[in-house]
Simulated scan of single mutants.
Amino acid sequence: MQAGILRRSMRLVCLLVSVPCFASVSVPDDTGQAITLASPARRIVSLAPHTTEMLFAAGAGPYIVGVTEFSDHPPPARAIPSVGSGVSLDLERILQMKPDLIVGWNNGYAGVQLDKLQSLGIPVFRSEPYDFATIASSLERLARLSATEPAGRAAAAAFRERLGQLRETYRQRRRLGVFYQIWRTPLMTLGGSHLVSAALRTCGADNVFSDLKQLAPTVTIEAVLKANPDVIVASSGEEDDVLAVWKRFPRMKAVANDNLLVIDSELLNRAGPRILDGVEMLCRKLDAIRMQSGARR
């Protein structure tokens, strides 16, 4: 309590004498590493589409000076200069931007690139949201780093409230087994630690490959046939008929009942605040399937 009173007193003094006055701030990133800034971040480079969305939602959008490809939401993000793709960054351009904070996806090769940038002395916030709670807390932590706490707190509270409403709405629905296809060749799905598995649980459904530890494992057609899901969901972004391969197996429950869905991958696969739009869309589609199956009985 004394520390809080001291901080408020320092802010009041700074206002009275009309000089900038900032206390250093330190928050943990998603790996538990402390990120400490001497003053609020004012030149941020975002290295993943979902971190760009988080920063805007947290009120830090005006301070983003660089993004990666596909950082297309919200619309103002499209006007921010690109520093490359998620797997091929222009490190020289990033350094020219003189960032005081880098926020990026801590996964695979992207994590290796974050290591390089951190070795150059730039504070790096590693984003690794594998559950909804981490998305909400990320909004608050990023807001603290950019001194936009009111926006961050409001965004996090709205996220938590909406998530709670979705869970309450669908928690007693009849369980459905779902195969979630993110790529056709090779055939890929998402494991139990991915947010999509949490999205399915929120909707009263289960990922038939939730026991797989990899984030995006490759599976065989035979494995999917053995799992015999009630529903097959595909991410948009591949060929027009991404589910055509399954129509060769009319005895599968999902095919026999025409329970083949395509979901907007930008909404559901990105670990940002808009994921709840994708969750709500998924829940409604699965509920429609429950209603149809009930009518067929």
Rank of each mutant, 00 (worst) to 15 (best):
3 A>Q: 15
3 A>Y: 15
5 I>M: 12
5 I>R: 13
10 M>K: 13
13 V>C: 03
15 L>A: 11
17 V>D: 00
17 V>N: 02
24 S>Q: 15
24 S>K: 15
30 D>M: 13
32 G>M: 12
35 I>Y: 09
40 P>W: 13
46 S>T: 14
54 M>C: 15
56 F>P: 08
57 A>N: 09
61 G>S: 09
61 G>P: 06
62 P>S: 03
65 V>A: 07
70 F>H: 11
70 F>R: 09
72 D>Q: 06
73 H>C: 00
87 V>S: 11
87 V>Y: 10
90 D>L: 09
91 L>C: 05
98 K>T: 07
98 K>D: 06
100 D>N: 13
102 I>N: 02
105 W>G: 05
106 N>G: 12
107 N>M: 06
114 L>M: 15
122 I>R: 07
124 V>Y: 09
124 V>G: 00
126 R>E: 06
129 P>Q: 15
131 D>M: 05
135 I>P: 08
135 I>S: 04
136 A>V: 06
138 S>K: 14
138 S>M: 12
140 E>T: 12
141 R>I: 07
145 L>G: 10
146 S>Y: 09
147 A>W: 08
149 E>I: 11
151 A>W: 01
156 A>T: 06
156 A>E: 05
157 A>S: 10
158 A>M: 02
168 E>Q: 12
169 T>K: 15
172 Q>V: 02
173 R>E: 14
173 R>Y: 10
178 V>S: 11
179 F>W: 09
179 F>T: 06
186 P>D: 03
188 M>F: 00
188 M>V: 04
189 T>G: 04
189 T>L: 04
190 L>S: 10
197 S>C: 02
197 S>H: 00
206 D>W: 00
209 F>R: 00
210 S>V: 04
219 V>L: 02
223 A>F: 01
225 L>Y: 02
226 K>S: 08
239 E>D: 14
242 V>R: 12
242 V>A: 15
242 V>G: 05
247 K>C: 08
249 F>Q: 14
250 P>R: 03
259 N>R: 12
275 I>K: 09
276 L>A: 01
287 D>E: 10
